[in-house]
Structures are given as C-alpha cells and as structure tokens.
C-alpha cells in the first residue's frame, strides 16, 4: 500500500501495510532514527512525535491513521541550528544516555506551544508519560522553565 506522508515539511511515499505503526515507518522505511522505540505500548514516550502540532505516541499510531503533517525531532532543530528548547537542553546538560530525550523534547515542545508559562504541576502533568531510566527529570524540568522564559522573550 502506497501512502504519502509529509514529515518535517518534506514529502515521502512509503509502501507498507496500513497497520504498521508510524514509529517503524519513520525508523525503518524513511530512515529518521531520532524517534526511538522504547516499549511499543505507549507507556514510555520515547517515540513521541507531533501530528499537526499535537504530541502523539508514534508506536500507537498506525500508518493508515496518520491524518496530518508529521514533525519529528529532526524537524525541531539541528546541531547547527538548535531550537530554543534544544538550547535549554544543552545549557542544562540534561541528557545522560540520551535515548529518551527525543521524546522528552517533543513532549516539552508540545507543552510549550500550548502553555508558554508552565508551572511545576503543569510540567508534571505533561511529562509524566515520558520515562527516563537515567533519572534526568530535575534537569528536564529546569530546561523547560528556561526554554519557556527564552521563548516568551522572543
């Protein structure tokens, strides 16, 4: 089955059954490996991407159910052109193993798009679906606050 997709502003066509989760379309067919496989059941958030700006678990989103433009971590910023959120991640030296951080950043980006000044409780609510086994939570929280302030300043 041939399916057209828009990912990070670029057009792709993939030839896979409609029930293949978007995660495995991105990783194994499109070659965008920044989005990670963690659990396959929507409980860790490592596979978080945006569809029409909304954070979704790509492991729980079948290819045939994708109904909008996809943004992955590769579309948020690049090493040479970091987004403000990524800059805050670097400033606070958030990552340890780093495996969950694509998902954390995508979830945080969706939070900040909706709520430009989240308090700690807002961060708890938005981020608790994203697991980090290294325990980077204190720095993730600090980075979100910093990014929020930077983005408000414009």
């Amino acid at each position: 089955m041939s399916t057209p997709l828009t990912i990070n502003g670029q057009s792709y066509t993939v030839d896979l059954p409609g029930d293949v989760p978007l995660l495995w379309v991105l990783r194994d067919a499109v070659g965008l490996t920044g989005t990670k496989y963690g659990c396959g059941v929507g409980s860790c958030g490592a596979c978080t991407v945006h569809i029409n700006g909304e954070a979704v678990r790509s492991c729980q989103t079948a290819l045939e159910d994708v109904d909008g433009d996809i943004t992955t971590i590769e579309g948020i910023g690049t090493p040479d052109a970091l987004s403000k959120l990524q800059t805050a991640w670097v400033t606070h030296q958030v990552a340890q193993c780093g495996y969950c951080q694509s998902g954390q950043i995508m979830q945080a980006a969706a939070l900040l798009a909706e709520n430009p000044a989240p308090n700690d409780a807002d961060i708890d609510d938005a981020m608790q679906g994203n697991l980090c086994r290294c325990g980077t939570y204190p720095r993730i929280r600090a980075a979100i606050h910093t990014a929020a302030a930077d983005m408000r300043e414009g």
């Binding site: 920044g34 992955t72 971590i73 970091l82 991640w89 990552a95």
Partner: peptide
C-alpha cells in the same frame, strides 16, 4: 555528546 543527544542525531 550533548548536542547530538538533544537533536536526535546521536
């Protein structure tokens, strides 16, 4: 490794 791990490029 911080920039790579913050951009999905690691």
């Amino acid at each position: 490794d911080m920039v790579a791990k913050s951009t999905g490029t690691a």
